[in-house]
Design a protein around this nucleic acid. Sequence first.
DNA 1: TCCTCTGTGCGTACAGTGTTCGCATCGAGG
DNA 2: CCTCGATGCGAACACTGTACGCACAGAGGA
Lengths: 245, 245
Amino acid sequence: MSRSRTTDKSPIPSVWTREQRRTDQPALSRDAIVREAIAMLDAEGIEALSMRKLGARLNAGATSLYRHVATKDELMELAVDEVAAEIHVPPAGGPDWRAAVTEAAGSFRTTALRHPWLTLVLGQAGLAYLGPNYMSFSERLAALFTAAGFPEPSRAIDAVFSYVIGMSTTEAAWLTTVARSGETESEFVARLLPAAQQASAGYDHLAAAGPETSAQAADPAQLRDDKFAYGLEVVLDGLALRLPK
Amino acid sequence: MSRSRTTDKSPIPSVWTREQRRTDQPALSRDAIVREAIAMLDAEGIEALSMRKLGARLNAGATSLYRHVATKDELMELAVDEVAAEIHVPPAGGPDWRAAVTEAAGSFRTTALRHPWLTLVLGQAGLAYLGPNYMSFSERLAALFTAAGFPEPSRAIDAVFSYVIGMSTTEAAWLTTVARSGETESEFVARLLPAAQQASAGYDHLAAAGPETSAQAADPAQLRDDKFAYGLEVVLDGLALRLPK
DNA sequence: TCCTCTGTGCGTACAGTGTTCGCATCGAGG
DNA sequence: CCTCGATGCGAACACTGTACGCACAGAGGA
Protein backbone atom coordinates (compact mmCIF):
# COMPACT_ATOMS: atom_id res chain seq x y z
CA MET A 1 0.00 0.00 0.00
CA SER A 2 1.21 3.44 -1.07
CA ARG A 3 4.92 3.48 -0.41
CA SER A 4 5.63 6.79 1.14
CA ARG A 5 7.01 9.02 -1.54
CA THR A 6 10.27 9.32 -3.38
CA THR A 7 11.41 6.17 -5.10
CA ASP A 8 8.15 5.66 -6.92
CA LYS A 9 7.70 3.98 -10.24
CA SER A 10 5.67 6.90 -11.60
CA PRO A 11 6.57 7.40 -15.29
CA ILE A 12 7.92 10.93 -15.10
CA PRO A 13 9.47 11.71 -11.75
CA SER A 14 8.66 15.29 -11.05
CA VAL A 15 8.52 17.57 -8.08
CA TRP A 16 4.84 18.10 -8.68
CA THR A 17 3.63 14.57 -8.98
CA ARG A 18 5.68 13.63 -5.97
CA GLU A 19 3.68 13.30 -2.78
CA GLN A 20 4.30 15.80 -0.07
CA ARG A 21 5.68 14.61 3.18
CA ARG A 22 2.61 13.81 5.18
CA THR A 23 2.95 16.40 7.91
CA ASP A 24 -0.60 15.87 9.08
CA GLN A 25 0.04 12.24 9.90
CA PRO A 26 1.84 12.08 13.21
CA ALA A 27 5.49 12.12 12.26
CA LEU A 28 7.66 9.14 13.10
CA SER A 29 8.93 9.94 16.55
CA ARG A 30 10.06 8.06 19.60
CA ASP A 31 6.81 8.78 21.41
CA ALA A 32 4.62 7.77 18.51
CA ILE A 33 6.57 4.53 18.13
CA VAL A 34 6.28 3.66 21.81
CA ARG A 35 2.57 4.47 21.84
CA GLU A 36 1.87 2.30 18.83
CA ALA A 37 4.01 -0.51 20.24
CA ILE A 38 1.95 -0.49 23.42
CA ALA A 39 -1.25 -0.61 21.40
CA MET A 40 0.05 -3.60 19.49
CA LEU A 41 1.25 -5.37 22.61
CA ASP A 42 -2.09 -4.91 24.31
CA ALA A 43 -4.07 -6.03 21.29
CA GLU A 44 -2.05 -8.93 19.98
CA GLY A 45 0.34 -10.02 22.69
CA ILE A 46 4.06 -9.90 23.15
CA GLU A 47 5.10 -12.39 20.52
CA ALA A 48 3.05 -10.65 17.84
CA LEU A 49 5.15 -7.51 18.05
CA SER A 50 7.81 -7.35 15.39
CA MET A 51 9.69 -4.36 14.11
CA ARG A 52 8.33 -4.92 10.63
CA LYS A 53 4.71 -5.07 11.69
CA LEU A 54 5.16 -2.08 13.96
CA GLY A 55 6.71 -0.13 11.10
CA ALA A 56 3.85 -1.08 8.83
CA ARG A 57 1.29 0.24 11.33
CA LEU A 58 3.11 3.56 11.33
CA ASN A 59 3.30 3.68 7.53
CA ALA A 60 7.03 3.33 7.78
CA GLY A 61 9.69 0.81 6.95
CA ALA A 62 10.94 -1.47 9.66
CA THR A 63 14.42 -0.08 9.72
CA SER A 64 13.21 3.49 9.98
CA LEU A 65 12.33 2.82 13.59
CA TYR A 66 15.99 2.42 14.41
CA ARG A 67 16.52 6.14 13.93
CA HIS A 68 14.51 6.72 17.11
CA VAL A 69 15.11 3.58 19.11
CA ALA A 70 18.42 1.79 19.48
CA THR A 71 17.07 -1.73 19.70
CA LYS A 72 13.90 -3.69 20.26
CA ASP A 73 14.86 -4.33 23.87
CA GLU A 74 15.19 -0.60 24.44
CA LEU A 75 11.77 -0.11 22.88
CA MET A 76 10.34 -2.61 25.37
CA GLU A 77 11.94 -0.74 28.26
CA LEU A 78 10.42 2.47 27.00
CA ALA A 79 7.04 0.79 26.75
CA VAL A 80 7.33 -0.49 30.31
CA ASP A 81 8.18 2.92 31.65
CA GLU A 82 5.37 4.55 29.69
CA VAL A 83 2.90 2.12 31.22
CA ALA A 84 4.37 2.61 34.69
CA ALA A 85 2.89 6.09 34.61
CA GLU A 86 -0.56 4.55 34.89
CA ILE A 87 0.08 3.20 38.37
CA HIS A 88 -1.52 5.36 41.01
CA VAL A 89 0.07 5.82 44.43
CA PRO A 90 -1.84 7.91 46.97
CA PRO A 91 0.04 10.79 48.61
CA ALA A 92 2.04 9.94 51.69
CA GLY A 93 1.00 10.97 55.15
CA GLY A 94 -2.68 10.15 54.94
CA PRO A 95 -4.52 8.87 58.00
CA ASP A 96 -4.94 5.29 56.74
CA TRP A 97 -1.76 3.74 55.43
CA ARG A 98 -3.44 0.38 54.80
CA ALA A 99 -6.00 1.92 52.51
CA ALA A 100 -3.27 3.80 50.68
CA VAL A 101 -1.11 0.72 50.21
CA THR A 102 -4.15 -1.29 49.14
CA GLU A 103 -4.90 1.35 46.54
CA ALA A 104 -1.33 1.34 45.21
CA ALA A 105 -1.21 -2.45 45.10
CA GLY A 106 -4.55 -2.64 43.32
CA SER A 107 -3.48 -0.01 40.84
CA PHE A 108 -0.34 -1.98 40.04
CA ARG A 109 -2.42 -5.09 39.54
CA THR A 110 -4.97 -3.55 37.22
CA THR A 111 -2.19 -1.97 35.20
CA ALA A 112 -0.44 -5.32 34.93
CA LEU A 113 -3.66 -7.01 33.83
CA ARG A 114 -4.44 -4.25 31.34
CA HIS A 115 -0.99 -4.83 29.81
CA PRO A 116 -0.36 -8.54 30.31
CA TRP A 117 3.09 -8.29 28.72
CA LEU A 118 4.28 -6.02 31.52
CA THR A 119 5.22 -8.73 33.99
CA LEU A 120 6.97 -10.72 31.29
CA VAL A 121 9.28 -7.82 30.45
CA LEU A 122 9.84 -7.07 34.11
CA GLY A 123 10.90 -10.66 34.69
CA GLN A 124 13.28 -10.47 31.78
CA ALA A 125 14.88 -7.07 32.22
CA GLY A 126 14.74 -7.20 35.99
CA LEU A 127 14.32 -3.48 36.39
CA ALA A 128 17.95 -3.20 35.45
CA TYR A 129 17.54 0.20 33.92
CA LEU A 130 14.96 2.39 35.50
CA GLY A 131 12.96 4.92 33.56
CA PRO A 132 11.70 8.16 35.11
CA ASN A 133 8.14 6.97 35.60
CA TYR A 134 9.23 3.82 37.36
CA MET A 135 11.59 5.85 39.52
CA SER A 136 8.90 8.23 40.60
CA PHE A 137 6.57 5.30 41.28
CA SER A 138 9.21 3.85 43.59
CA GLU A 139 9.80 7.22 45.20
CA ARG A 140 6.13 7.71 46.00
CA LEU A 141 6.02 4.20 47.46
CA ALA A 142 9.02 4.97 49.63
CA ALA A 143 7.39 8.16 50.82
CA LEU A 144 4.19 6.30 51.63
CA PHE A 145 5.83 3.57 53.67
CA THR A 146 8.17 5.96 55.42
CA ALA A 147 5.30 8.19 56.44
CA ALA A 148 3.44 5.12 57.68
CA GLY A 149 6.25 4.69 60.17
CA PHE A 150 8.07 1.60 58.95
CA PRO A 151 11.64 1.56 60.24
CA GLU A 152 12.80 -0.33 57.15
CA PRO A 153 10.50 0.90 54.41
CA SER A 154 12.37 -0.82 51.57
CA ARG A 155 11.91 -4.23 53.16
CA ALA A 156 8.21 -3.60 53.68
CA ILE A 157 7.84 -2.46 50.08
CA ASP A 158 9.65 -5.52 48.82
CA ALA A 159 7.40 -7.79 50.87
CA VAL A 160 4.17 -6.25 49.62
CA PHE A 161 5.17 -5.87 46.02
CA SER A 162 6.80 -9.23 45.67
CA TYR A 163 3.40 -10.59 46.53
CA VAL A 164 1.66 -8.20 44.15
CA ILE A 165 4.07 -8.98 41.31
CA GLY A 166 3.80 -12.71 41.86
CA MET A 167 0.02 -12.71 41.88
CA SER A 168 -0.20 -10.33 38.92
CA THR A 169 2.24 -12.41 36.89
CA THR A 170 0.18 -15.54 37.44
CA GLU A 171 -3.06 -13.76 36.65
CA ALA A 172 -1.64 -12.10 33.55
CA ALA A 173 -0.43 -15.45 32.24
CA TRP A 174 -3.84 -16.94 32.88
CA LEU A 175 -5.62 -14.08 31.13
CA THR A 176 -3.29 -14.40 28.17
CA THR A 177 -4.17 -18.06 27.86
CA VAL A 178 -7.85 -17.23 28.10
CA ALA A 179 -7.52 -14.51 25.47
CA ARG A 180 -5.80 -16.90 23.08
CA SER A 181 -8.76 -19.25 23.36
CA GLY A 182 -11.05 -16.55 22.00
CA GLU A 183 -13.62 -17.30 24.70
CA THR A 184 -14.72 -15.32 27.71
CA GLU A 185 -13.17 -16.26 31.01
CA SER A 186 -16.37 -17.97 32.19
CA GLU A 187 -16.66 -20.04 29.03
CA PHE A 188 -13.03 -21.03 29.23
CA VAL A 189 -13.34 -22.06 32.86
CA ALA A 190 -16.47 -24.06 32.14
CA ARG A 191 -14.76 -25.89 29.30
CA LEU A 192 -11.66 -26.51 31.40
CA LEU A 193 -13.48 -27.74 34.47
CA PRO A 194 -13.83 -31.45 33.66
CA ALA A 195 -10.21 -31.66 32.54
CA ALA A 196 -9.05 -29.96 35.73
CA GLN A 197 -11.08 -32.30 37.89
CA GLN A 198 -9.78 -35.31 36.06
CA ALA A 199 -6.20 -34.07 36.35
CA SER A 200 -6.45 -33.83 40.11
CA ALA A 201 -8.25 -37.14 40.41
CA GLY A 202 -5.43 -39.07 42.03
CA TYR A 203 -4.49 -36.25 44.35
CA ASP A 204 -6.63 -36.27 47.49
CA HIS A 205 -5.70 -32.94 49.01
CA LEU A 206 -5.65 -31.11 45.71
CA ALA A 207 -9.13 -32.29 44.89
CA ALA A 208 -10.35 -31.32 48.35
CA ALA A 209 -8.65 -27.93 48.42
CA GLY A 210 -9.27 -26.86 44.86
CA PRO A 211 -11.90 -24.24 44.24
CA GLU A 212 -13.02 -25.99 41.09
CA THR A 213 -16.70 -26.21 41.65
CA SER A 214 -19.07 -25.12 38.96
CA ALA A 215 -20.88 -22.87 41.41
CA GLN A 216 -17.80 -20.75 41.94
CA ALA A 217 -16.88 -20.81 38.28
CA ALA A 218 -19.76 -18.48 37.51
CA ASP A 219 -17.78 -15.30 38.08
CA PRO A 220 -14.07 -16.07 37.77
CA ALA A 221 -13.03 -12.41 37.72
CA GLN A 222 -14.68 -11.84 41.08
CA LEU A 223 -12.94 -14.91 42.40
CA ARG A 224 -9.59 -13.52 41.30
CA ASP A 225 -10.33 -10.17 42.88
CA ASP A 226 -11.14 -11.86 46.17
CA LYS A 227 -8.06 -14.02 46.06
CA PHE A 228 -5.85 -11.03 45.45
CA ALA A 229 -7.49 -9.05 48.23
CA TYR A 230 -7.17 -11.96 50.65
CA GLY A 231 -3.44 -12.39 50.11
CA LEU A 232 -2.88 -8.66 50.31
CA GLU A 233 -4.65 -8.52 53.66
CA VAL A 234 -2.44 -11.34 54.88
CA VAL A 235 0.71 -9.44 53.95
CA LEU A 236 -0.57 -6.17 55.41
CA ASP A 237 -1.51 -7.91 58.67
CA GLY A 238 1.98 -9.30 58.88
CA LEU A 239 3.46 -5.88 58.23
CA ALA A 240 1.23 -4.18 60.77
CA LEU A 241 2.82 -6.34 63.46
CA ARG A 242 6.15 -4.73 62.64
CA LEU A 243 4.93 -1.18 62.92
CA PRO A 244 6.39 0.42 66.08
CA LYS A 245 3.48 1.42 68.21
CA MET B 1 31.44 -32.42 13.93
CA SER B 2 31.41 -35.91 12.56
CA ARG B 3 28.06 -36.15 10.90
CA SER B 4 26.42 -39.21 12.25
CA ARG B 5 26.73 -41.88 9.67
CA THR B 6 25.08 -42.60 6.38
CA THR B 7 25.35 -39.85 3.81
CA ASP B 8 29.10 -39.58 4.20
CA LYS B 9 31.55 -38.56 1.53
CA SER B 10 33.72 -41.58 2.15
CA PRO B 11 35.00 -42.86 -1.23
CA ILE B 12 33.44 -46.31 -1.15
CA PRO B 13 30.24 -46.43 0.81
CA SER B 14 30.15 -49.76 2.47
CA VAL B 15 28.36 -51.37 5.32
CA TRP B 16 31.69 -51.92 7.05
CA THR B 17 33.12 -48.48 6.84
CA ARG B 18 29.84 -47.10 7.97
CA GLU B 19 29.77 -46.15 11.62
CA GLN B 20 27.60 -48.22 13.86
CA ARG B 21 24.76 -46.50 15.56
CA ARG B 22 26.29 -45.30 18.77
CA THR B 23 24.25 -47.37 21.16
CA ASP B 24 26.60 -46.59 24.03
CA GLN B 25 25.99 -42.88 23.67
CA PRO B 26 22.61 -42.08 25.15
CA ALA B 27 20.26 -42.43 22.22
CA LEU B 28 18.13 -39.53 21.14
CA SER B 29 15.17 -39.73 23.44
CA ARG B 30 12.70 -37.41 25.01
CA ASP B 31 14.44 -37.61 28.36
CA ALA B 32 17.90 -37.02 26.94
CA ILE B 33 16.62 -34.04 25.00
CA VAL B 34 14.97 -32.49 28.03
CA ARG B 35 18.07 -33.08 30.16
CA GLU B 36 20.37 -31.47 27.64
CA ALA B 37 17.97 -28.56 27.15
CA ILE B 38 18.03 -27.90 30.89
CA ALA B 39 21.81 -27.99 30.89
CA MET B 40 21.91 -25.47 28.05
CA LEU B 41 19.33 -23.22 29.68
CA ASP B 42 21.24 -23.20 32.94
CA ALA B 43 24.57 -22.54 31.28
CA GLU B 44 23.70 -20.05 28.59
CA GLY B 45 20.32 -18.59 29.36
CA ILE B 46 16.92 -18.81 27.80
CA GLU B 47 17.57 -16.93 24.60
CA ALA B 48 20.62 -19.02 23.80
CA LEU B 49 18.56 -22.17 23.45
CA SER B 50 17.68 -22.97 19.87
CA MET B 51 16.61 -26.23 18.39
CA ARG B 52 19.63 -26.26 16.08
CA LYS B 53 22.14 -25.70 18.88
CA LEU B 54 20.40 -28.25 21.06
CA GLY B 55 20.49 -30.78 18.24
CA ALA B 56 24.16 -30.12 17.71
CA ARG B 57 24.94 -30.78 21.38
CA LEU B 58 23.21 -34.15 21.02
CA ASN B 59 25.07 -35.00 17.83
CA ALA B 60 21.82 -34.78 15.98
CA GLY B 61 20.15 -32.62 13.43
CA ALA B 62 17.77 -29.95 14.57
CA THR B 63 14.74 -31.51 13.00
CA SER B 64 15.39 -34.89 14.55
CA LEU B 65 14.25 -33.50 17.85
CA TYR B 66 10.74 -33.14 16.52
CA ARG B 67 10.36 -36.91 16.52
CA HIS B 68 10.33 -36.79 20.33
CA VAL B 69 8.94 -33.36 21.07
CA ALA B 70 6.04 -31.70 19.30
CA THR B 71 7.26 -28.15 19.57
CA LYS B 72 9.75 -25.96 21.36
CA ASP B 73 7.06 -24.72 23.73
CA GLU B 74 6.28 -28.28 24.71
CA LEU B 75 9.97 -28.87 25.31
CA MET B 76 10.00 -25.90 27.67
CA GLU B 77 7.02 -27.28 29.55
CA LEU B 78 8.80 -30.59 29.92
CA ALA B 79 11.89 -28.79 31.19
CA VAL B 80 9.82 -26.90 33.74
CA ASP B 81 8.23 -30.06 35.02
CA GLU B 82 11.55 -31.86 35.19
CA VAL B 83 12.96 -29.09 37.31
CA ALA B 84 9.87 -29.01 39.50
CA ALA B 85 10.97 -32.35 40.86
CA GLU B 86 13.84 -30.61 42.64
CA ILE B 87 11.53 -28.68 44.92
CA HIS B 88 11.36 -30.23 48.34
CA VAL B 89 8.19 -30.14 50.42
CA PRO B 90 8.34 -31.63 53.92
CA PRO B 91 5.73 -34.24 54.79
CA ALA B 92 2.45 -32.95 56.13
CA GLY B 93 1.44 -33.26 59.73
CA GLY B 94 4.74 -32.30 61.35
CA PRO B 95 4.70 -30.41 64.63
CA ASP B 96 5.91 -27.10 63.16
CA TRP B 97 4.00 -25.99 60.11
CA ARG B 98 5.93 -22.72 59.86
CA ALA B 99 9.23 -24.52 59.60
CA ALA B 100 7.81 -26.83 56.97
CA VAL B 101 6.39 -24.01 54.86
CA THR B 102 9.63 -22.08 55.24
CA GLU B 103 11.51 -25.12 53.97
CA ALA B 104 9.21 -25.52 50.97
CA ALA B 105 9.36 -21.83 50.12
CA GLY B 106 13.14 -21.79 50.39
CA SER B 107 13.41 -24.88 48.24
CA PHE B 108 11.28 -23.26 45.56
CA ARG B 109 13.48 -20.19 45.68
CA THR B 110 16.79 -22.00 45.40
CA THR B 111 15.41 -24.06 42.54
CA ALA B 112 14.26 -20.92 40.77
CA LEU B 113 17.66 -19.30 41.26
CA ARG B 114 19.49 -22.42 40.12
CA HIS B 115 17.41 -22.32 36.92
CA PRO B 116 16.81 -18.61 36.32
CA TRP B 117 14.71 -19.33 33.23
CA LEU B 118 12.08 -21.11 35.33
CA THR B 119 10.15 -18.04 36.38
CA LEU B 120 10.20 -16.68 32.84
CA VAL B 121 8.54 -19.79 31.46
CA LEU B 122 6.08 -19.89 34.34
CA GLY B 123 5.09 -16.31 33.59
CA GLN B 124 4.59 -17.17 29.95
CA ALA B 125 2.81 -20.49 30.12
CA GLY B 126 0.97 -19.66 33.29
CA LEU B 127 0.89 -23.20 34.54
CA ALA B 128 -1.73 -23.85 31.90
CA TYR B 129 -0.74 -27.44 31.45
CA LEU B 130 0.47 -29.20 34.51
CA GLY B 131 3.07 -31.91 34.43
CA PRO B 132 3.14 -34.75 36.96
CA ASN B 133 5.96 -33.31 39.05
CA TYR B 134 4.27 -29.96 39.33
CA MET B 135 1.03 -31.67 40.23
CA SER B 136 2.60 -33.68 43.01
CA PHE B 137 4.36 -30.56 44.26
CA SER B 138 0.98 -28.84 44.50
CA GLU B 139 -0.54 -31.89 46.13
CA ARG B 140 2.12 -32.01 48.83
CA LEU B 141 1.62 -28.32 49.48
CA ALA B 142 -2.10 -28.81 49.80
CA ALA B 143 -1.53 -31.65 52.25
CA LEU B 144 0.85 -29.49 54.27
CA PHE B 145 -1.48 -26.53 54.58
CA THR B 146 -4.52 -28.67 55.21
CA ALA B 147 -2.74 -30.53 58.01
CA ALA B 148 -1.67 -27.19 59.44
CA GLY B 149 -5.33 -26.47 59.94
CA PHE B 150 -6.07 -23.76 57.40
CA PRO B 151 -9.76 -23.67 56.56
CA GLU B 152 -9.00 -22.43 53.03
CA PRO B 153 -5.67 -24.02 52.21
CA SER B 154 -5.65 -22.97 48.56
CA ARG B 155 -5.93 -19.29 49.49
CA ALA B 156 -3.12 -19.62 52.00
CA ILE B 157 -0.95 -21.39 49.43
CA ASP B 158 -1.64 -18.71 46.87
CA ALA B 159 -0.72 -15.99 49.34
CA VAL B 160 2.60 -17.56 50.30
CA PHE B 161 3.65 -18.65 46.85
CA SER B 162 2.63 -15.49 45.09
CA TYR B 163 5.13 -13.82 47.36
CA VAL B 164 7.73 -16.51 46.74
CA ILE B 165 7.25 -16.39 42.98
CA GLY B 166 7.38 -12.61 42.89
CA MET B 167 10.56 -12.40 44.91
CA SER B 168 12.19 -15.27 43.02
CA THR B 169 11.33 -13.72 39.68
CA THR B 170 12.94 -10.45 40.64
CA GLU B 171 16.00 -12.17 42.03
CA ALA B 172 16.37 -14.43 39.02
CA ALA B 173 16.21 -11.46 36.68
CA TRP B 174 18.85 -9.70 38.74
CA LEU B 175 21.13 -12.75 38.77
CA THR B 176 20.74 -13.10 35.01
CA THR B 177 21.84 -9.51 34.55
CA VAL B 178 24.79 -10.09 36.85
CA ALA B 179 25.76 -13.25 35.01
CA ARG B 180 25.71 -11.45 31.68
CA SER B 181 28.21 -8.94 33.04
CA GLY B 182 30.71 -11.71 33.65
CA GLU B 183 31.49 -10.34 37.08
CA THR B 184 30.72 -11.67 40.53
CA GLU B 185 27.70 -10.21 42.26
CA SER B 186 29.85 -8.15 44.61
CA GLU B 187 31.90 -6.70 41.77
CA PHE B 188 28.77 -5.87 39.82
CA VAL B 189 27.17 -4.18 42.81
CA ALA B 190 30.31 -2.17 43.51
CA ARG B 191 30.48 -0.99 39.91
CA LEU B 192 26.79 -0.16 39.88
CA LEU B 193 26.75 1.71 43.16
CA PRO B 194 27.67 5.22 41.99
CA ALA B 195 25.21 5.03 39.11
CA ALA B 196 22.45 3.89 41.43
CA GLN B 197 23.13 6.68 43.87
CA GLN B 198 23.17 9.24 41.11
CA ALA B 199 19.92 7.88 39.68
CA SER B 200 18.11 8.33 42.97
CA ALA B 201 19.64 11.74 43.57
CA GLY B 202 16.50 13.77 43.06
CA TYR B 203 14.32 11.36 45.01
CA ASP B 204 14.45 12.08 48.72
CA HIS B 205 12.71 9.05 50.12
CA LEU B 206 14.32 6.65 47.69
CA ALA B 207 17.76 7.85 48.65
CA ALA B 208 16.90 7.59 52.33
CA ALA B 209 15.25 4.19 52.11
CA GLY B 210 17.62 2.55 49.67
CA PRO B 211 20.01 -0.03 51.01
CA GLU B 212 22.73 1.20 48.67
CA THR B 213 25.52 1.69 51.11
CA SER B 214 28.91 0.27 50.36
CA ALA B 215 28.97 -1.40 53.76
CA GLN B 216 26.00 -3.57 52.92
CA ALA B 217 27.22 -4.21 49.39
CA ALA B 218 29.93 -6.48 50.76
CA ASP B 219 27.78 -9.60 50.74
CA PRO B 220 24.85 -9.11 48.39
CA ALA B 221 23.81 -12.76 48.45
CA GLN B 222 23.40 -12.63 52.23
CA LEU B 223 21.37 -9.46 51.82
CA ARG B 224 19.06 -11.21 49.40
CA ASP B 225 18.66 -14.17 51.71
CA ASP B 226 17.70 -11.87 54.55
CA LYS B 227 15.26 -9.92 52.44
CA PHE B 228 13.54 -13.09 51.30
CA ALA B 229 13.34 -14.45 54.83
CA TYR B 230 11.95 -11.17 56.13
CA GLY B 231 9.12 -11.04 53.62
CA LEU B 232 8.33 -14.68 54.17
CA GLU B 233 8.04 -14.12 57.92
CA VAL B 234 5.68 -11.25 57.22
CA VAL B 235 3.40 -13.45 55.15
CA LEU B 236 3.52 -16.31 57.62
CA ASP B 237 2.70 -13.97 60.50
CA GLY B 238 -0.29 -12.75 58.57
CA LEU B 239 -1.38 -16.30 57.87
CA ALA B 240 -0.94 -17.40 61.47
CA LEU B 241 -3.59 -14.86 62.46
CA ARG B 242 -6.05 -16.76 60.31
CA LEU B 243 -5.37 -20.13 61.84
CA PRO B 244 -8.33 -21.21 63.97
CA LYS B 245 -7.05 -21.61 67.47
C1' DT C 1 20.67 30.97 -6.40
C1' DC C 2 23.61 27.49 -5.18
C1' DC C 3 26.16 24.49 -2.03
C1' DT C 4 26.91 21.98 1.83
C1' DC C 5 25.54 19.68 6.02
C1' DT C 6 22.65 17.15 9.09
C1' DG C 7 18.80 14.36 10.04
C1' DT C 8 15.57 11.03 8.41
C1' DG C 9 13.48 7.16 5.71
C1' DC C 10 14.20 2.82 3.78
C1' DG C 11 15.74 -1.14 0.30
C1' DT C 12 18.78 -4.69 0.61
C1' DA C 13 21.13 -8.08 2.89
C1' DC C 14 22.78 -11.27 6.56
C1' DA C 15 22.59 -14.45 10.02
C1' DG C 16 19.59 -16.68 12.60
C1' DT C 17 14.88 -18.72 14.16
C1' DG C 18 10.89 -22.60 14.55
C1' DT C 19 8.89 -25.85 11.87
C1' DT C 20 7.20 -28.87 7.54
C1' DC C 21 8.02 -32.21 4.14
C1' DG C 22 9.71 -36.09 1.99
C1' DC C 23 13.36 -39.21 1.53
C1' DA C 24 16.74 -42.58 3.40
C1' DT C 25 17.70 -45.82 6.56
C1' DC C 26 17.31 -48.77 10.51
C1' DG C 27 15.71 -52.80 13.61
C1' DA C 28 12.10 -55.95 14.44
C1' DG C 29 8.40 -59.26 13.14
C1' DG C 30 6.21 -62.30 10.08
C1' DC D 1 13.98 -62.61 2.94
C1' DC D 2 10.58 -59.03 2.93
C1' DT D 3 7.81 -55.73 4.76
C1' DC D 4 6.63 -52.14 7.99
C1' DG D 5 6.75 -48.71 11.41
C1' DA D 6 9.94 -45.78 13.74
C1' DT D 7 13.67 -42.71 13.41
C1' DG D 8 17.19 -39.33 11.55
C1' DC D 9 17.87 -35.53 8.66
C1' DG D 10 18.79 -32.19 4.40
C1' DA D 11 16.38 -28.76 2.13
C1' DA D 12 13.18 -25.30 2.22
C1' DC D 13 9.76 -21.68 3.96
C1' DA D 14 8.34 -17.84 6.28
C1' DC D 15 9.81 -15.23 9.66
C1' DT D 16 12.88 -12.49 12.97
C1' DG D 17 16.30 -8.37 14.63
C1' DT D 18 19.43 -5.46 12.84
C1' DA D 19 23.86 -3.20 9.91
C1' DC D 20 24.84 -0.68 6.01
C1' DG D 21 24.70 2.70 2.63
C1' DC D 22 22.12 5.41 -0.47
C1' DA D 23 18.45 9.02 -1.43
C1' DC D 24 16.36 12.86 -0.22
C1' DA D 25 14.44 17.06 2.72
C1' DG D 26 15.13 21.13 4.83
C1' DA D 27 18.21 24.60 7.07
C1' DG D 28 22.03 27.77 7.06
C1' DG D 29 25.63 30.19 4.85
C1' DA D 30 27.99 32.28 0.73
